[in-house]
Simulated assay, not measured.
Amino acid sequence: MPGPVSAAWLLVALCAATGTYCLLRMRSGVEEQRRAAGGEALMGFGMAVMAVPAAVFTPPRWAWPLYAAVFGAAALRALWAARAAPHHLHHLVGTGAMVYVSVAMAAAPPGAHHTHGGSGLPLLTGALLLYFTGYVLLTGARLVPATGPEPAAGARGRPEPGGRPLGWGDRPELARACRLSMGIGMVAMLLTM
């Protein structure tokens, strides 16, 4: 990733921490949570690897097509899942963006790794940048707590339909925060394209 090395390392840390949290969410008792968390862990770790500064590690040329294939398979899985649950469309856009970045890096001249320079802002990069910027703003706004009366003492654990309180990995606001951090990471990566 171009730009200041400290910013690249912050992005690596953010994406790796998000990927790790998503791995922990895979222990959820809710199958849909486990499935979504697995895809999000893949995205988090993939973004962390892509964000490592080029001065530290430059992947070999064959790695970029491999990344594209892995994220292409994840995109097909998200497309299949989106038939039944439309919220998987975001996963489809995210994995598609990772395929796009991987293909762009594979097509870059050998000496231009992590420089992403080019002639202006390609249309697809701009569209993805608009999507993820909007997603970050909307998700961030949803995380802001609404002001209102304090919930009853028993309502803080937010019991699930079976009557048991939700585990920390099943909390919707934590999943949103995870997706928000990956959206921020994607915006940062797309800005460098």
Score class of each variant (00 low, 15 high):
P86F: 12
G154E: 15
L76N: 08
E160C: 06
S181F: 11
T18Q: 05
G39A: 06
P109W: 11
A153D: 14
A13K: 02
P60N: 03
A51P: 02
A55P: 04
A146F: 03
G154A: 14
V56L: 04
T18S: 09
M189L: 15
G72W: 10
A41I: 05
R27T: 13
T95V: 02
A97G: 08
G94T: 04
W80G: 03
A75Q: 13
G44Y: 11
A37K: 03
Y100T: 04
M182F: 06
M182H: 03
A7T: 07
E150R: 15
G118K: 10
M50F: 01
A81H: 09
V103P: 08
P59E: 14
A54L: 11
E173N: 11
T147P: 06
P165V: 15
P59F: 14
W62T: 10
L79R: 12
A127Y: 02
P151F: 01
G126R: 05
A63Q: 05
G157S: 14
L24C: 00
M186Y: 11
T192V: 09
M105P: 05
V144Y: 06
I184W: 09
L143R: 02
H90W: 15
T192R: 15
R176T: 09
A48I: 00
M182S: 13
H116V: 03
L23S: 04
A84Y: 13
A16C: 01
H90Q: 15
A54I: 09
A107C: 06
A127L: 15
A153P: 11
Y21H: 09
A17H: 08
E160F: 11
L129I: 11
A107Y: 03
Y100K: 05
A152M: 12
L89D: 03
V103N: 09
